[in-house]
Amino acid sequence: MAKVLVVTSGKGGVGKTTSTAALGAALAQTGENVVVVDFDVGLRNLDLVMGAERRVVFDLINVVQGDAKLNQALIRDKRIDTLSLLPASQTRDKDALTEAGVERVIGELREKFDWVICDSPAGIERGALLAMRHADVAVVVTNPEVSSVRDSDRIIGMLDSKTLRAEKGERMEKHLLLTRYDTARAARNEMLKTEDILEILSIPLLGIIPESEEVLRASNVGAPVTLNNPTSAPARAYFDAARRLKGESVEVVVPLERKGLMSRLFGRRVA
């Protein structure tokens, strides 16, 4: 049975799109049939992070409005054939997304894929609400930083009240994905610790993605980090998170960057 997952956060810039691409690719790399859907109408970026920006012909709004068939808008990844992208519109008004239209498209995607991963826009407006509306599972992306934790708390409240599942009185599954985490700084009490954030938000932990240069490196070349450098620390953390989404129990560890001799000697000075 297909699962619809929303990647959300409230706050912008915490890593929703990076995490959507990485989790989507990680699931697809293990043979699952995955589609990642960009809900950020007007500010689409998932296509760019996935390296498919020049292949966009039709988009979510075209499909919602019936101007294109779903198959015409879906872009299959060139590296993993079980991974597809449904891009957002860059030119249209975000009001072009209708609730009934989104419901129909999500329903069609459920038929075709094992996982439908919706990349939510930032904020708590219509776009974010539509992205979470039909979700079975939510991944709340949070940075260890006060404004991000506050916004995540707000989004958790909305997941528990504004989604279809919540309205039907069903349980909305929510997971915390902690990104840009720096174990050393947390140990020095310079950064909120995982347990602090878990205590404040009280939702289960899906994974801890360490702060890493690999994330920017991957988006520079248009590849999810799990594809671009599968053995890097953030990629391993995303693979673990993907396994937990599939229901496997994997112990949470923060993967460390494997540094070569040169970067170990000079890394700190450069950074």
């Binding site: 006060v146 409240g157 610790k193």
Partner: peptide, 23 residues
């Protein structure tokens, strides 16, 4: 440097407040 405990405490107070308003 030990600023994380301050962050934690500020958040706990603030969110207790905000949850109460919303709830």
């Amino acid at each position: 440097r030990d600023t994380a405990p301050v962050a934690r405490e500020r958040l706990q107070v603030l969110l207790a407040h905000e949850r109460a308003v919303i709830g």
